[in-house]
């Protein structure tokens, strides 16, 4: 009897499949934009065609400088994805490492890890990100670092909790008695057994990170004009939306697709990675 993989369970989850399709669309859009394949140049201004509604030439219409909104949405999506991936990667690496080490060794080390995450949790996420971006700068890498700092404690918690219970399992004691080195115990025997909640958290955090990046740009901190960012586009569209709805609608739609898609992927992963939920 062949063992069913988590993926076959994932494919049974409706939210997982829908989310997966949305995420694939986002990735495709970002890749196209990264390769420079957009209908128009997202930066070129064309004042004659400013604030045109959707047409066969400009599918999503143009903004107040006559730039193609579809192209700018694609470029913004690429930037949001990039920031989100980099930020969540950093947060995962740092948070999981701290969580595992703290949970496994306990005592003073764990006390430090827990306090650290408590302190960061104490600040409202967006305020903390604002403060960090303000002190670091406005480049996409600065934005990523700011978001990573805010999200690190979430990964500390998600990793540390299960480690506390897994390290008491007999199979972990067994390999300790067998004289395996501590890194080997941590990364070959504990990490694989705490991975599922971390994977789910990655998907969910990516969607939040996209929102945070948009939020920062909206407030004028993340991406700077003339570069395109979904949040910045929404911000710029504030005054225009009353008479040019497309300037607000399409960037908002892209943000929604990204956030909903990643959230659904998170749900699908949760259903497929948790054996207790598989039965239903």
């Amino acid at each position: 009897m062949r063992e069913k993989t988590w993926f076959s369970y994932y494919l049974k989850s409706t939210s997982g499949v829908v989310g997966g399709i949305l995420v694939l669309i986002m990735v495709a859009i970002s890749l196209l934009s990264a390769l420079g394949i957009t209908p128009h140049d997202p930066l070129i201004q064309d004042p004659i065609n400013a604030l045109q509604g959707p047409s066969s030439q400009y599918w999503f219409g143009t903004d107040q400088f006559g730039r193609d909104i579809l192209s700018r949405c694609m470029d913004g999506m690429r930037r949001s994805m990039l920031v989100s991936i980099v930020a969540v990667s950093i947060a995962t690496l740092v948070g999981v490492l701290m969580g595992i080490v703290g949970g496994y060794f306990g005592k003073v080390l764990d006390g430090f890890v827990v306090r650290f995450s408590d302190v960061i949790f104490a600040f409202p996420a967006i305020l903390l990100a604002l403060a960090i971006v303000n002190s670091l700068g406005n480049s996409w890498i600065d934005t990523s670092i700011a978001i990573a700092v805010v999200y690190t404690p979430i990964f500390i918690r998600v990793a540390r909790g299960p480690v506390l219970s897994v390290k008491e399992m007999d199979y972990v004691k067994a390999v300790r008695i067998l004289g395996f080195s501590t890194p080997k115990v941590l990364f070959s025997h504990i990490l694989p057994n705490v991975l599922p909640p971390i994977v789910i958290q990655i998907a969910l955090s990516m969607s939040w990170a996209i929102l945070t990046e948009s939020g920062l740009s909206f407030l004028g901190l993340g991406t700077q004009p003339p570069d395109a960012s979904l949040g910045l586009m929404v911000s710029e569209a504030q005054s225009l939306a009353a008479f040019a709805w497309w300037t607000l609608a399409f960037p908002s739609l892209f943000i929604t697709i990204a956030v909903v898609g990643l959230n659904l992927v998170g749900d699908g992963l949760r259903d497929s990675l948790d054996p207790a939920r598989r039965s239903s």
Binding site: M169, D170, Y171, A174, V175, H189, P192, N193
Partner: peptide, 8 residues
């Protein structure tokens, strides 16, 4: 049931 690593 708990003395062997379930993922190995």
């Amino acid at each position: 049931y708990s003395s062997l690593n379930p993922r190995q």
